[in-house]
């Protein structure tokens, strides 16, 4: 470690201690566990600053926060998954004994097939077995068995996606493109003469409504032409594809601009934590 690094480190530690002590004193009136609370708030604040230090450059404090975050979050999901899914939902359905052992209400039952009652518990032993097969990856010989649960997941969701997207992204979208290009209620088409002599440029007027419908119509078709892969984009086809990519770009710009403003509010939230909860500068 270089000398500067040592000095910086000492400074950070000193600041941490000072912050802890001051915060503990401030919190003494409101909380019995002020020392622990002050420590935790200070930790949170320093981790926040450590992440922000990344904006300057990669440094040991960022690395520390990053590695800690990775470890803690991975464990968090595992613990959460164990208690809520395995203990909370899976085990009580597997057998009454397991449910009693884990002090959960047993959720048994069966599907009446007429001839006999098919117990639900069998249906939950299957994923347990498949899940264990997945863990076979860790053994050098049994790795191929782990493809079975994978096949189940991929097959099921592929089938589901196939019909679902065919409906929502294809049929529904195609149907939505059938827009009136000439007037309809509340602005029925009364010929070109009428249209131009009563040209209404306001946002709710007929001109804007029709223009918008034409833009949607042309935009969708040129956009689709841009996505043609098996034909060269030359000639009229190429021109339409150019228009398509222009409209795509305008769209991307608009949604980019729209998101910028949303992101700023996140920053404001974080600064509020630093200045209010930690430093107490604003109330």
């Amino acid at each position: 470690m270089s000398r500067t690094a040592v000095i910086v480190f000492a400074g950070v530690v000193a600041l941490f201690v000072v912050s802890w002590m001051v915060k503990a004193m401030v919190l003494a009136d409101v909380s019995e566990t002020n020392i622990v609370d002050a420590f935790m708030v200070t930790v949170a604040a320093f981790l926040t600053l450590a992440i922000y230090s990344f904006l300057y450059k990669d440094n040991p404090y960022y690395k520390f926060a990053e590695h800690l975050f990775v470890g803690v979050s991975a464990a968090f999901w595992m613990v959460q998954g164990f208690w809520t899914t395995i203990v909370g939902n899976l085990l009580p359905r597997l057998s009454e004994g397991l449910a009693t052992w884990f002090q959960q209400p047993y959720q048994g039952g069966g599907y009446d097939l007429g001839v006999f009652v098919f117990p639900y518990s069998i249906m939950y032993w299957i994923p347990v077995i498949l899940g264990s097969l997945l863990l076979m990856r860790l053994s050098p010989q049994g790795g191929w068995l782990s493809r079975w649960p994978l096949a189940l997941i991929v097959g099921t969701t592929a089938g589901l996606n196939f019909v679902r997207y065919l409906r929502s992204d294809f049929i529904v979208q195609v149907a939505a493109t059938f827009v009136p290009l000439f007037g309809r209620d509340p602005h029925p088409w009364q010929g070109f003469g009428h249209f131009f002599s009563n040209l209404d440029l306001s946002a709710s007027g007929q001109f804007v409504a029709l223009l918008s419908n034409w833009v949607i119509f042309i935009g969708v078709f040129c956009g689709l032409i841009y996505f043609f892969f098996s034909k060269e984009h030359t000639g009229a086809f190429g021109k339409a594809s150019r228009v398509g990519i222009w409209i795509l770009m305008i769209t991307f710009g608009a949604s980019f601009g729209y998101t910028v403003m949303g992101r700023i509010s996140l920053l404001v939230g974080r600064l509020t934590f630093l200045f209010r909860d930690w430093l107490g500068l604003i109330s």
């Binding site: 979208q173 939505a176 493109t177 918008s212 833009v215 949607i216 119509f217 042309i218 935009g219 969708v220 078709f221 040129c222 956009g223 689709l224 841009y226 996505f227 398509g244 409209i247 795509l248 305008i250 769209t251 991307f252 608009a254 949604s255």
Partner: peptide
């Protein structure tokens, strides 16, 4: 409008 068209494409 253009956003809707491009999104749909």
């Amino acid at each position: 409008v253009p956003n809707l068209a491009a999104q749909r494409a």
